[in-house]
């Protein structure tokens, strides 16, 4: 169902509050991958608060949609959303990264309710999404698999091996996002290892490409609904985003791939989010 203005307003509020949660967790953790967590906030918000068929009181419910955060270093963002949906108490995140905590930077599916697949090593998520989608189709299940990739992550050969397989098997029960924030660790994607023409690569691998504004709920909503209704080929949504989005001193800054926040920076970061 097309998104309403009212829904968009609510999602914006959710995104704002989740951004602040991510800032808090980064502070508690002593450091986290905050840049790439901020760039995917709208993607997670619209999935968790509009489209996913899930029930946080039954994290292992058989018919739930599956989510794979293939860019697993975004765990700090992922954890914030899972807590906000009620998978666990947000207070637990005060121990993020700490000794014996269930929460390391890269979330562990055995320890964290709501996490379908343990990720953190890049390039693993899409192959697993292909397997889940094949499994669902074979067992005549209606649930879908949503997979979120980093753009730098798309350097990995395994992504393209899986891309080949998804179109070969005509998987239309999986929806893939690329968080196209144009930065990786050592610099801009196009300087470290050029991806462009990026859409053409996916098309050449047999996918349907939808470009979206990754911080615009209307644009994301149109792309997702298109993908949900597609029946011929897998769809990838290339979501154009800004790394560090919402925190002025982090936006588009390579060095904020990973970092810590003291109380001063936490304050500044939250004020910046309020001004969005």
């Amino acid at each position: 169902m097309p998104i309403t203005d009212q829904e968009i307003q609510k999602l914006k509020e959710t995104a704002c509050s989740l951004r602040k949660d991510i800032i808090d967790i980064t502070g508690w953790a002593g450091g986290a991958h905050i840049g790439g967590a901020m760039s995917m906030v709208e993607i997670l918000a619209i999935l968790y608060y509009k489209y996913l068929n899930i029930d946080s009181s039954r994290p292992n419910w058989e018919d739930r949609d599956r989510v794979i955060l293939s860019k697993g270093h975004g765990g700090v963002g992922y954890a914030a959303f899972l807590a906000s949906k009620g998978y666990f108490d947000k207070e637990l995140l005060k121990e993020f990264n700490h000794f014996k905590s269930p929460f390391g930077m890269h979330l562990d599916g055995n320890k964290v309710p709501g996490v379908d697949v343990s990720t953190g090593s890049l390039g693993h998520g899409l192959p697993i999404a292909v397997g889940l989608s094949l499994g669902a189709r074979l067992q005549k299940k209606n649930w879908k698999t949503y997979c979120i990739l980093g753009d730098g992550e798309c350097n990995e050969g395994s992504i393209w091996e899986a891309a080949m397989a998804a179109s070969h098997f005509k998987l239309t029960n999986m929806i893939t996002f690329v968080d196209r924030n144009k930065l990786m660790i050592d610099g801009p994607t196009e300087e470290v290892m050029g991806l462009e023409p990026f859409s053409d690569k996916w098309k050449a691998f047999g996918w349907i490409v939808k470009e979206a504004q990754g911080h615009d709920f209307k644009s994301l909503s149109e792309a997702i609904e298109f993908a949900q209704n597609e029946t011929k080929a897998p769809v990838v949504i290339i979501a154009n985003t800004i790394k560090g989005k919402g925190i002025d001193f982090m936006e588009n800054q390579v060095k904020w791939h990973y970092g810590g926040l003291n109380s001063d920076l936490i304050e500044k970061a939250k004020q910046s989010v309020d001004r969005m």
Binding site: G30, N97, G104, M105, H106, D108, G120, S121
Partner: peptide
């Protein structure tokens, strides 16, 4: 020359 070996990046979790 491989870095972050053993548990030296312990807070990152098993994948690291």
């Amino acid at each position: 020359i491989a870095t972050h070996a053993g548990t030296s990046f312990g807070q990152a979790g098993t994948t690291h």
